[in-house]
Design a protein around this nucleic acid. Structure first.
Length: 573
RNA sequence: UGGGGUGUCGCCAAGCGGUAAGGCACGGGACUUUGACUCCCGCAUGCGUAGGUUCAAAUCCUGCCACCCCAGCCA
């Protein structure tokens, strides 16, 4: 490497004072911060502005991570703000879940928690100033008439007959709108911009409407409410936001955003930058679709472990670190994209591999009888809690003549590539002994009821003093103290990568096997009396967590967060 | 046929005129007391397309094509 003069050789590339770009938004911010830039010398200030009308999902997580991590990167601040300008759709019940989800993700807005409704008085004042400047007018067209006069994508709209009424008259009417003199929908306040603009948003957009809906915070103090396009830039300006990051569909609202900023003489001039929202394969993200699944009881509520809601992912066993890692690694761009669900799973496995305690559990148990092991005898073994993390220590498991093993770990006949139990075959019982399969018992129907084997006392601990190689190692649980449990196995909610394709109803793509409930599972005794939250790796099976809703200390219910990668079953397909 | 965007490997995504990073997925191999993990190897003579400028183009210019968003008193 050359250029040793520009930077001390022992410093990493980003150890200078110059911020290093992470994606195009950071590029823009670096430009804005540079000498002569739009925000030169200012502290970066972002915000996450959810509307409290639903639960947060992984798509929101992307936006949250972008906003909070951008602020962090530039040593700035990020606010949390409820964008509650439409009382007919919003409710305080969502506010708490939103805060909980963001905190769970690991972000904190300190004392900067705001409501758009906090600014209703200022917004009203700004609107009055706009009227006085003849930049807004009270329009008495009905919504139907407004629609008809808006024109189409290819033809200009026509001007409202109220467009040129005197400012004083508009102002008076606006005051009276606020005073409740007119019924809902009777009139609106419109920005006076350009009815022939190619940008529909600039065709005299409505910025205030009359609505007597009860607001979750301001009650019936107001009967007029600002529209998003008017409210949002003001909210940002009031909070001194520098960079207002939002999704692509607001791109053509930016001229209006800037128009508002330009004409209100607000306390700041924020800059809106848009990025592509997240789509994931095998699921749906729209509020409407999620609501449908919940209301039609296709899933078990907003926190169903199959849903991409943050509460669902949490219940499924996703860790905040894994979700954050996912959001950071998918990148930020302006390309409409759909990320493979497998990548989300990868991020979870990666986190859990290093942190999850290993434990033995048998989901589909069959009895293994070790015929040459003394009846009544029992011994104990120390097993590492996590081979990836020796400092996590060990735990004790008991061993006796009869064990539970996975039904799938026994075959009546050997077949190509299979190296678990079949008559004559040796396998290792994890950390216990090497055993040789001798056969099995069957009932009248021919169902296998038990597997028989003989153990080699010389292999205690699973070692082979004679050096012989044992290819297969299987997990097991002592029948003497195993704990019964329920295990819920999850798969994609939709079998199609894109359930929202245009040819069919998304509901037609539901995966009938998205949930498989297994009862009668047997888990090792160390799991007795457990309470959530706790994540485990069930050896050889996958990562599991206690179900936060249904698990009881005496009646354990586990959710499979994600299976282990399985090159064997993959090769069998 | 208006306006605003976007097109780099199956999926994300770097690249900012000097000769295509990385991750996921996939395939092969090594290792293995988890068929896990880890580690190797492979995976775009090509950057929507056609021209042009240049010694040199994914990067600059022009035309074309495809896809996404916009006609709520939703956000």
């Amino acid at each position: 490497m050359s250029d040793v003069n520009s930077r001390p050789a022992d410093l990493p590339a980003d150890a200078t004072n110059e911020p290093v770009a992470g994606h195009f938004i950071h590029d823009e911010i670096i430009r804005d911060l540079a000498a002569g830039g739009r925000f030169a010398g200012q502290q970066v200030h972002t915000r996450f502005p959810p509307e409290p009308n639903g639960y947060l999902h992984i798509g929101h997580a992307k936006a949250i991570v972008i906003n909070f991590s951008t602020a962090e990167k530039f040593q700035g601040l990020c606010n949390l703000r409820m964008d509650d300008t439409n009382p007919s759709k919003e409710d305080t019940e969502y506010v708490d879940s939103i805060k909980e989800d963001i905190h769970w993700l690991g972000y904190d807005w300190e004392d900067r928690f705001y409501y758009a409704s906090d600014y209703f008085p200022q917004m009203y004042e700004f609107a009055c100033r706009l009227i006085e400047k003849n930049l807004a007018y009270v329009c008495e067209l009905t919504s139907e008439q407004i629609r008809q006069t808006r024109g189409t994508l290819t033809t200009p709209g026509s001007e409202s007959p109220w467009r040129d009424r005197p400012a004083a008259e508009s102002l008076d009417l606006f005051h009276r709108m606020r005073a409740g003199e007119f019924p809902d929908g009777a009139m609106t306040l419109r920005a006076r911009i350009d009815m022939s603009s190619g940008n529909m948003n600039m065709r005299d957009p409505v910025i205030y409407r009359i609505s007597r809906a009860n607001h979750h915070r301001t009650g019936d103090r107001w009967c007029i409410y600002p529209m998003y396009d008017f409210a949002h830039p003001i909210e940002d300006a009031m909070e001194g936001i520098t960079h207002s990051l939002c999704s692509l569909e607001f791109e053509d609202h930016r001229p209006l955003y800037d128009w508002i900023i330009d004409h209100i003489d607000g306390p700041a001039r924020p800059r809106q930058i848009e990025f592509a929202r997240l789509n994931l394969t095998h699921t749906v993200m729209s509020k409407r679709r999620l609501r449908y699944l919940v209301e039609e009881k296709i899933v078990d509520g907003w926190d169903d472990p199959r849903l991409p809601t943050l509460s669902g992912l949490r219940r499924r066993g996703f860790t905040p670190a894994s979700v954050r890692s996912f959001c950071e690694r998918i990148g930020v761009s302006k390309v409409n994209s759909t990320v493979d669900y497998a990548f989300l799973e990868h991020c979870l496995r990666e986190d859990l591999n290093s942190t999850a305690q290993r434990v033995m559990a048998v989901i589909d148990p069959i009895r293994l009888i070790i015929d040459n092991y003394p009846e009544g005898k029992s011994e104990t073994f120390e097993i590492e809690n996590n081979p990836e993390s020796p400092e996590d220590g060990t735990r004790t498991v008991t061993f006796s003549r009869e064990l539970w093993i996975e039904r799938d770990d026994f075959r009546e006949e050997k077949f190509k590539g299979y190296f678990r139990l079949f008559p004559g075959q040796e396998v290792r019982l994890k950390t216990a002994y090497v055993i040789r399969c001798t056969g099995c018992d069957k009932d009248e129907q021919g169902q296998i009821t038990a597997v028989h084997a003989e153990y080699d006392p010389a292999t205690r601990g699973g070692n082979t003093p004679d050096g012989r190689r044992i290819k297969g190692t299987i997990h097991w649980v002592d029948t003497l103290n195993a704990i019964p449990a329920e295990v819920r196995l999850y798969d994609n909610l939709f079998s199609a990568a894109d359930p929202d394709d245009s040819e069919s109803q998304f509901i037609e793509h539901l995966n009938p096997e998205s949930l498989t409930v297994r009862t009668g599972c047997q888990v090792e005794a160390s799991l007795a009396g457990l309470t959530p939250p706790k994540a485990f790796q069930f050896l050889r099976l996958g990562y599991f967590c206690l179900d936060s809703k249904d698990s009881r200390p005496d009646q354990l219910v586990f959710n499979r967060s994600v299976s282990l990668r399985d090159s064997w079953s993959r090769s069998q397909k």
